[in-house]
């Protein structure tokens, strides 16, 4: 019943779903269910309930003492429809941060969020921080407490950093899951953060996951970029990325399933 394709060798050249074979003109059962599995994993990653306390527990074992904050998005459905809510802190969060603000502000504030993939935040943020924090401490960076922000979007780190008068503000958050990459983390930072900064003022390291840019590599890249940002006194399109010792992270993801 299934007619296999004679050109399966072409699969060596791409991760695209080619040479799937057919039943009549339709997909055979195997590829149909493989696709459904990949989509199910991506959906689970988007919808998974984020447990900040669970992540906080793991981070405490590393010696951090994270503080949990909320964005203006009260739940997952609102978060997905209102990106503007995810870019702003809740009133409670703002008060918590104001109470923690000191002068002079820290060199850097780091926060973790579920973003669009709780799975990414749970899987990648701990190994990344394990590799990043010792490097920063060895260089004498003064760090703010670590924050976990529920339902955040890129840009919220500018408000957090602004309230704390931080020199730099870094957020690690789950990226929009692809079919082959439900667990990909992104890292975005801003120099002299404050609300109103645009994408052009931010730098990004993306595709952080074992099959993409592994967390240990991402930590080295972020350490170099943050150091350069502090030295050059800027972030965004003007920052010279001279971190050329790293491999290209743009290799195609393997097929799931």
């Amino acid at each position: 019943m299934e007619t296999p394709d004679s050109w399966t060798r072409l699969r060596d050249f791409t991760a695209a779903r080619i040479a799937l074979g057919r039943a009549g003109g339709s997909q055979p059962t195997g590829p149909l269910l493989d696709f459904r599995l990949a989509h199910a994993r991506a959906r689970d990653a988007v919808l998974a309930v984020f447990e900040p306390q669970e992540l906080a527990g793991t981070l405490r074992e590393m010696g951090c003492d994270p503080v949990v904050l909320d964005s203006c998005a009260p739940d997952r459905a609102t978060y997905l429809q209102r990106p503007d809510f995810g870019r702003r802190l809740s009133n409670d969060a703002r008060e918590t941060l104001s109470a923690l603000a000191r002068q002079p502000g820290p060199d850097l504030v780091i926060m973790v969020s579920d973003g669009l993939s709780s799975l990414a935040a749970m899987e990648q943020s701990t190994p990344l921080l394990q590799a990043l924090l010792p490097r920063l401490e060895a260089d004498g960076w003064r760090l703010a407490p670590l924050f976990i922000v529920r339902h955040a979007r890129v840009a919220i780190q500018d408000e957090v950093g602004g309230i704390l008068s931080a020199g730099l503000s870094l957020i690690l958050l789950g990226e929009r899951p692809g079919l082959g990459s439900p667990d990909s983390l992104g890292a975005y930072f801003t120099h002299r953060p404050m609300p109103g900064k645009t994408d052009a003022a931010r730098n990004c390291v993306s595709n952080i996951r074992a099959q993409g840019l592994p967390p240990e590599m991402a930590a080295r890249k972020l350490h170099a970029l943050l150091t350069a940002s502090r030295r050059q006194g800027l972030s965004g399109v003007g920052l010279k990325d001279d971190v050329s010792f790293l491999p290209d992270s743009a290799s195609p993801p393997p097929l799931a399933g």
Partner: peptide
């Protein structure tokens, strides 16, 4: 799109097989 899965743009569209479904 091969298998409806665009591996560059990371979204799902319609596949070559889908065109056979609708034409048929």
């Amino acid at each position: 799109v091969p298998g409806a899965d665009d591996i560059m743009l990371n979204y799902q569209s319609t596949s070559f097989h889908d065109s056979h479904f609708v034409r048929q």
